[in-house]
């Protein structure tokens, strides 16, 4: 008679506490879900879920405040950095982050993000760059690539008429108040791991009171791009990376030690 041996099960992977166990409205293959999970893992690991306030954008992530298991607000389109400023100035010991898409942050909210960074607001911004307006059905964004077809650039973005796509990380990195500004991507596992490290540093910069921090995440929009999820990952790598190089655009001296800490 064989002896049954009880092996104690060990949890190696589970939903972060900072992420609610509810279905999201995101399309299949969209990387918003990955970005949400990375933020939630970081909030858990830093032990700050119970003193965090998230500010959601208008756009695909309008309901992010329902997905994060933190206190949260829903801002007007583009105004999340202003709203976060109001919250952080009266609650300086809390952790305040904005989660914004490219239409929100790089078009209608350009003034708010630049001035929040200029003031060195001690907030963390997660910037989802998917080169399109997803929520409204795939219109041209300020980040839409040259010649990229969208419903409002049906023959491809004509830069002579609509200008060139805006590189927000490079732009914000110029401001002394911005202490950590990096661009990462969510198109493969390696880059996702690097994105998580950056998100962690961006929150630690805030917690240490160093200034404004932003992580730009290159993301997919299979629905808006009219591609399958695997094709969208490839398109991001082939088309977006050359124009939006990954890298650290600003690491202030005070922030540098945070990068060296081994986890």
């Amino acid at each position: 008679m064989a002896t049954a041996t009880m092996v104690e099960e060990q949890v190696v992977y589970q939903r972060p506490e900072a992420l609610n166990d509810i279905p999201t409205h995101y399309c299949p293959g969209c990387t918003h879900g990955i970005a949400h999970r990375l933020i939630a893992e970081v909030l858990d690991e830093l032990g700050v879920r119970e003193r965090t306030i998230g500010v959601s954008p208008v756009g695909c992530a309008a309901f992010a405040y329902q997905y994060f298991n933190t206190d949260g607000a829903e801002a007007a389109h583009g105004r999340a950095p202003a709203m976060a400023t109001g919250i952080k100035r009266v609650l300086p010991n809390r952790v305040v982050f904005t989660y914004q898409g490219d239409g929100d942050l790089a078009a209608i909210g350009t003034a708010e993000i630049i001035h929040a960074a200029m003031r060195g607001e001690k907030i963390t911004t997660i910037f989802i760059n998917n080169a399109i307006y997803g929520m409204t059905g795939g219109q041209m964004a300020p980040t839409t690539l040259a010649h990229q077809r969208t419903t409002s650039s049906p023959t491809g973005r004509d830069v002579a008429l609509t200008g060139f796509p805006i590189r927000m990380s490079e732009l914000l990195a110029q401001l002394p108040g911005a202490v950590y500004v990096v661009r990462r991507s969510l198109h493969n596992v390696k880059e996702i791991m690097k994105a998580k490290q950056a998100i962690r540093v961006a929150f630690e910069a805030q917690i240490n009171g160093l200034g404004f921090a932003m992580v730009e995440l290159l993301s997919t929009c299979p629905t808006g791009w009219k591609l399958t999820p695997p094709e969208a990952m490839e398109w991001l790598e082939q088309e977006m990376l050359p124009y939006y190089p990954l890298g650290d655009y600003k690491v202030a001296d005070d922030v540098a030690p945070l990068l060296k800490k081994r986890r």
Binding site: R79, M83, G86, R89, V90, A111, E112, I114
Partner: peptide, 26 residues
């Protein structure tokens, strides 16, 4: 107490919105 000269009236009222959500008289 908190004072911010905003970049616009649009930003100013949205800062008020944020501070109000945080439960402050603003």
């Amino acid at each position: 107490r908190a004072f911010v000269q905003a970049e616009s009236e649009v930003a100013a009222i949205n800062m008020v919105y944020g501070a109000a959500c945080a439960g402050a008289r603003t």
